[in-house]
């Protein structure tokens, strides 16, 4: 979705020659990019292209082999704990505790993200109302349909209004209507000033990003607005752009 990201708004993610090696294997190879406040930044690549490694470095979970990274104003190598406190994270695989009730999950994650009891209470009420979840408040998360869980997981990942939220394939396996509702939530968060860093295997979703970065064999092969990439690669869809670029990969996915 194209909205206007102010070109002079502050940079919230900066990768400067970021590299990660595991032994002889270079998973992420000298990547450079900047993401501005409120931007929806799509991070695409084949399995094994290095997306997860890059995301783990940017969220303070992995120390880079070389290069510098800054997220939410903190250095990812020297201040990983401050980075973690200022970001949200949501993945398809792990998001909420199935055996806890909806409100208990919110309380748990709110607490982890540093909110106090009264903030959690206000946020819980606000969330229940906005998601139309009042009837589900006391239900176990495992009893909710997947679409509900995904929406709740996203709402929880931004409950502390982080500067950046990392979404790792947030819509995998979700039905088409819920998938679209989910993107509308992402969009609202971005309008609210939260920077969104998202990976996906659905190429139509790449179109909803302000800019996308395509990683091939650990290197950035393309970084631009979806519309400009389509023009440059003479393609009708992002799927075609992706296929043209990813076919260049020589690395066996790992």
């Amino acid at each position: 979705m194209n909205k206007i990201v102010n070109p002079i708004s502050e940079i919230v993610i900066k990768a400067d020659h970021l590299t990660k090696k595991f032994g002889q294997f270079t998973a992420v190879d000298d990547i450079c990019f900047e993401v501005r406040k409120g931007e929806i930044f799509g991070f695409l690549g084949a399995n094994g292209a290095g997306k997860t490694t890059a995301m783990r470095m940017l969220s303070g979970l992995l120390i880079p082999t070389s290069g510098v990274g800054q997220v939410a104003g903190f250095d990812i190598t020297h201040q990983p704990e401050q980075v973690k406190r200022n970001i949200g994270y949501m993945s398809q695989r792990f998001s909420l505790y199935d055996d806890l009730k909806v409100w208990e999950n919110i309380e748990l994650f709110g607490g982890i993200y540093g909110l106090n009891a009264s903030q959690i209470k206000i946020k819980t009420d606000e969330l229940m109302q906005r998601l139309n979840f009042e009837d589900e408040r006391n239900k176990l998360v495992k009893s909710l349909p997947l679409g509900f869980k995904q929406k709740l997981a996203f709402a929880v990942s931004v409950i502390h209004h982080p500067q950046v939220v990392f979404l790792d394939e947030p819509t995998g396996g979700v039905d088409p209507i819920t998938r679209r509702n989910f993107w509308e939530m992402i969009y609202e968060a971005a309008v609210d000033g939260i920077t969104v860093f998202v990976t996906t295997h659905y190429m139509d979703e790449a179109e909803y990003c302000d800019r996308v970065c395509i990683l091939v064999d650990g290197k950035i092969e393309a970084l631009d607005k979806p519309g400009d990439l389509k023009v440059r690669f003479n393609a009708d869809s992002m799927d075609e752009v992706f296929l043209q670029l990813a076919r260049k990969a020589t690395r066996l996915d790992g």
Binding site: A46, N47, A49, G172, G173, H201, D239, L243, A246, D253
Partner: peptide, 10 residues
């Protein structure tokens, strides 16, 4: 093909 990238899926 769940979680598999578009190239490998094809």
């Amino acid at each position: 093909t769940t979680g598999v990238d578009p190239v490998s899926r094809k």
